[in-house]
Design a protein around this nucleic acid. Structure first.
Length: 471
DNA sequence: TCTGGGGTCCTATAACCT
DNA sequence: TCTGAGGTTATAGGACCC
């Protein structure tokens, strides 16, 4: 999908169509998740600090992500993909690989192209948003093709042209080559894919390691036989928070770790999973990050067990100087839950007790958690997040344009409708209430029997509907 | 005003087992 | 009984992706 989050917001909010829209974290440490193409012209892009984006595009609309909306659109798109093939591999909410050969819908470049175009039409009619399609004989090339196809296009890589197409491209084009590997290769004098192919496998292995070097060499030759894999089980669950200002108070840090542990277990449980290894993540004031983990005797989904493990891990971490981010995760996931939670908890407590006698207690300034009294501004921002939907008893459906000084400003408009007008209310106006997002398309075309009459054939290309990439 | 939040995979090292 | 080789698991870190 093209500039997915931003496009969804533009579709949901008619007044934003054609405008610079930035979706991401809005706090002092937020980063941009997606910028609309109008904002990209101004130099705004994904992963950029929101503060920097505001300097580049002061008049853009700044919105927090609304994952429930994006998820529902994503499900519509994935449903369409599932009609093309049983082999659909989602990479994120807005991107997936589809094995058209396994679906029997494309057999040659002509039918692949036709299928891709029909898919793009279907996506537009069902979701109201544009998607781009890359068609090629492998996942790597399909992905590269989809990047080239954006926005709102389709690119097919003709069989036989792969190597000459890749040769002049930057090494950064290849999947798995990020900033670090890119720098590494550049220092070795390699900037293009052709440089990699000429360097040879042995040299690449020497430079970047066995697995990576081998894979890189094959990619450079255009070789990629990784299959499209449907339904992969998650291998870990984690939650993390970056704080607007660094945390210094140890007591507060402990309290945050407990909160995160509980949130992590909630997510774990809602996925019907349990996990055996608890991981604590700490990012310090200087952005250095460390993780500490503890493997339990068996998988658990007990909040107490995870909380206690996380707390133990924290005790071994020096947080003087301040903490920027805390995270708690669980890996080693299992589908079953440990029955004997009592023994698990008892075991944990016993270990904690052992640790206590063997260690000198750390001198602590044990002042109580000072609950920062939330300002009226913070309260308003939490109740009326920028961009979220609201309903007013008289004015109908709208969205929050902004809030401050005890007021909330709402624009009353709906997807597919005309640009609406703006009204300001008191934050505690009883006629105003939060609302769920409306569908982006009111009466979508019925695709329940799509695609009609498929040509049954073998040996066809793979396609990728491309997502967001970073500069 | 630098640098989110969710993940995956790979590597290195140490400990432990056979 | 000691030693060594080799495998597996736990742990920590880092690169990468969207």
């Amino acid at each position: 999908m093209d500039a997915f989050y931003a496009s969804a917001e533009q579709a949901a909010k008619p007044s934003l169509r054609g405008k610079a829209v930035v979706v991401g974290g809005l706090g002092p440490r937020g980063v941009v998740a997606t910028a609309s193409y109008e904002a990209r012209v101004l130099g705004v892009h994904s992963a950029m600090p929101t503060a920097q984006a505001r300097r580049l595009a002061p008049n853009a609309a700044y919105l927090v992500p609304r994952f429930s909306l994006y998820r529902s659109v994503s499900e519509q798109v994935m449903e369409l993909l599932g009609r093309l093939s049983p082999l659909v591999e989602p990479l994120s909410l807005d991107e997936a690989f589809v094995d058209l050969e396994a679906g029997g819908v494309a057999d040659d470049t002509v039918s692949a192209r036709r299928t891709g175009e029909r898919l793009r039409t279907a996506i537009r009619e069902v979701t109201g948003l544009s998607g781009s399609v890359g068609l090629a004989g492998s996942k790597m090339l399909a992905k590269i093709a989809s990047e080239q196809a954006k926005p709102d296009g389709l690119v097919l890589i003709e069989p036989g042209t792969e190597r000459e197409l890749l040769a002049p491209m930057s090494v950064r084009t290849l999947p798995g080559v990020g900033p670090a590997t890119g720098d590494h290769l550049r220092r070795a004098g390699m900037t293009t894919v052709n440089d990699l192919a000429e360097a040879g496998e042995a040299e690449l292995v020497r430079l970047v390691g066995k697995a990576h070097g081998h894979g890189l060499y094959r990619m450079a030759l255009g070789l990629d036989d990784r299959p499209v894999v449907a339904e992969r089980d998650a291998k870990s669950v984690s939650v993390e928070d970056t704080f607007d200002v660094d945390l210094h108070d140890r007591v507060r840090v402990r309290a945050e770790v407990e909160r995160l542990a509980v949130r992590c277990v909630e997510r774990l449980r809602s996925a019907d999973r349990s996990g055996r290894t608890v991981v604590l993540k700490v990012r310090r004031y200087d952005f250095s990050t460390l993780t500490r983990s503890e493997t339990l005797r068996g998988p658990t989904d007990d909040p107490t067990v995870v909380r206690e493990a996380a707390a133990r891990l924290l005790e071994a971490v020096d947080t003087t100087g301040g903490v920027r981010l805390l995270g708690v995760g669980v890996t080693g996931l299992a589908d079953f839950t440990q029955e004997d939670l009592f023994a698990q908890a008892a075991d944990a407590r016993e270990r904690a007790a052992r640790a206590e006698v063997s260690e000198k207690p750390v001198a602590e300034d044990s002042k109580p958690v000072e609950e920062e009294p939330e300002s009226a501004e913070q309260l308003a921002a939490r109740r009326w997040p920028a961009g979220h939907d609201v309903r007013h008893t008289a004015h109908g459906h709208g969205w929050v344009q902004g809030s401050g000084v005890g007021r909330v400003t709402v624009r009353f408009e709906e997807p597919g409708g005309p640009v609406g007008r703006v009204v300001t209310f008191r934050v505690d106006d009883p006629e105003l209430s939060p609302a769920d997002p409306l569908p982006l398309v009111r009466d979508p075309v019925d695709y329940s029997s799509w695609p009609a009459s498929l040509p049954k054939s073998r040996s066809g290309p793979v396609s990728a509907a491309g997502g967001e990439s970073r500069p």
